[in-house]
Design a protein around this nucleic acid. Sequence first.
DNA 1: TTGACATATTCCCATATAGGAATATATTGG
DNA 2: CCAATATATTCCTATATGGGAATATGTCAA
Lengths: 113, 113
Amino acid sequence: MPRAATTSDAFNAVAEPRRRDILNFLALQERSVGEIVDAMDLEQPSVSKHLRVLKDVGLVQARREGRRMLYQTNAVAIRPLYEWSSTFERFWRHQLLQVKERAEGKKDPVKVN
Amino acid sequence: MPRAATTSDAFNAVAEPRRRDILNFLALQERSVGEIVDAMDLEQPSVSKHLRVLKDVGLVQARREGRRMLYQTNAVAIRPLYEWSSTFERFWRHQLLQVKERAEGKKDPVKVN
DNA sequence: TTGACATATTCCCATATAGGAATATATTGG
DNA sequence: CCAATATATTCCTATATGGGAATATGTCAA
């Protein structure tokens, strides 16, 4: 079995860093493909292909305005990622607290090197 | 250029749902490979391979205890995902608010169907 | 209609998968 | 040392990829 398609869900779609860049860019403001091409350092066909993937999983919305297509990030579609990752928040809090306590020598006397 | 390796970063590593399941499972408690195999519905070699990927990107830590290997989620490594996704929080908040307002007919009178 | 502009799709290819099967490595008890 | 247990690795294959190049589609202005 090969890897799941990039279009299978948001997790797979955002694994590609360029697509995350595009989502960042399109969150602030609706943009045309040409503007995305200028902002990122990518060829137009590459941008169109990335947009296709993002659109397939609902991470962007598109609308036509004359000859141009305007894209915009659909932020709600990123929520599953946020939800999943935030379940680990209490664990890393705990972890970082332990590191801090160790650094302050709460339990063990500091081992000076 | 092919897709980036699953071991290239946390984003690529957690794109695979089984690996997310494993991380969930190992966040609560340190577990042996055998215990993971029993909990998930996967063959032992598959589990070992997933653990290899997770270890390569620092998402789990391993230690040996006798013949067994005990794995544990390294929650801090999930933070980049959380950080990135949370930058979109204000956008989806805004988005959901608009939906709510529209439903309540704040601006437009409700179109009754 | 035609030409220019904007975007999307197709074809190409090297590459990394995930799982299955088989096997290798490591550790312990006796 | 050997057998048993636990885990890791290797080999296999079908498949989806991302970028490059070329081309197709769509839309407007005149």
